[in-house]
Design a protein around this nucleic acid. Structure first.
Lengths: 199, 199
DNA sequence: TACCTTTGCTTAACACTGTTAAATAAATTT
DNA sequence: AAATTTATTTAACAGTGTTAAGCAAAGGTA
């Protein structure tokens, strides 16, 4: 009775096809464009049969998210094993994380919820630049003795912003550490960065 | 001919009503639940009249985004003016930014694209914890001489993650600074944080 | 006052979305 | 060859954003 196996193998295959098709669509048109009917088109079936492989659309996204985390974990493990000094290991791992985010952009978006649609927002909306401007003004003031270029100031701004936006993202999505601890992280990070402006 | 003015005033009023209604719905049910027909219900009209005030749904979101940036700018300006030392000003401004993100959560989500739906992802998906685990392992190793608590290590992890995820978010949404500069920021940030582990 | 035109608003419709139930075609078992 | 099970599709529902057509009330003009 090898036919049962063959059918099971075929079933597993279309399961994979669904995931692959989804990823293809996303790579071509973005997450917003992913629809059940489009997936069905790509695997040459009609939409309802997808529901024999996945409970719903979210289940597909969940499976892809899982795949993404496995990929990321593999990359980071590999990076780690190339070094022996812990400091080097951490750098390598975070660089791997960084690379993953851009080479598997779609996965990263799905995993951490970064939407790309608001590209060049500052260009069509000057208000988006105001917070930037009022902060860089002061950064400029602090760094004045070193005669920094516009890029230098910009870089410092984005470093600040990264830390804080990152922390906020974490706290909006997952609610793990307490508010007090987060405020401590924030304050020390800020003062640390500020001290580094004059150095 | 004051009637023309009255009518114009009424028009402006329902424009505001549309924005207010949208924000109310979002506060109650989240961004995902915002629909033209729901807005219309709330302002006691039918959906098509909204298109006499806004080109489409995105225009409404854009207007709210603008409002959000104005609110944020105001808060940060206020915070700045309460101090004279630049370092203090920066801390106050970023604290204002931080507070804004949580007191105007809906705005912040809209402005910076953080989706909240993936709450407690780690609980239903163990794979999401793997990157966390393999990094904290090494952090633990570095910090061993100081006998850190589990929370200490966790905090360090999230500090790393904030910087990097923040930088990535910036680079996925807006494409402003060059790759080389970003890599420099990343490397210096990482080595700085790593040095601070032993201190 | 009667007519015409403009305005404000609604109903109806189109093309989508995710999802489910019923109908049908194909394959397997009896 | 008939009955049953499995695979797949068609049709439908409720929702989405959006547009066009229709109606009803108000304004201006004769």
């Amino acid at each position: 009775m090898g036919s049962k196996d063959r059918i099971l193998r075929l079933k597993e295959e279309t399961r994979i096809n669904i995931l692959d098709a989804s990823l293809d669509i996303v790579k071509e048109e973005g997450w917003q464009a992913l629809s059940m009917r489009k997936i069905a088109d790509k695997i040459e079936y009609t939409a309802p049969i997808i529901y024999e492989y996945f409970a719903n659309k979210e289940a597909i996204l969940m499976e892809l998210t899982r795949k993404g985390f496995l990929l990321l974990a593999r990359d980071m493990k590999e990076a780690k094993e190339k070094h022996r000094l812990p400091a080097k290991q951490i750098e390598a791992m975070w660089l791997a994380y960084w690379n993953f985010a851009f080479t598997h952009k779609e996965f990263y978006q799905l995993m951490f919820g970064v939407d790309v649609n608001c590209c060049e927002l500052a260009q069509i909306m000057p208000e988006a630049e105001v917070p930037f401007n009022i902060v860089t003004e002061v950064i400029q003031e602090i760094m004045a003795p070193q005669n920094p270029s516009e890029d230098d100031v910009c870089v410092k701004y984005y470093t600040y912003w990264s830390v804080i936006h990152g922390l906020i993202s974490i706290n909006l999505t997952r609610r793990t550490t307490s508010d007090e601890i987060n405020r401590e992280i924030l304050k020390t990070a800020i003062s640390g960065l500020t001290r580094s402006l004059s150095a």
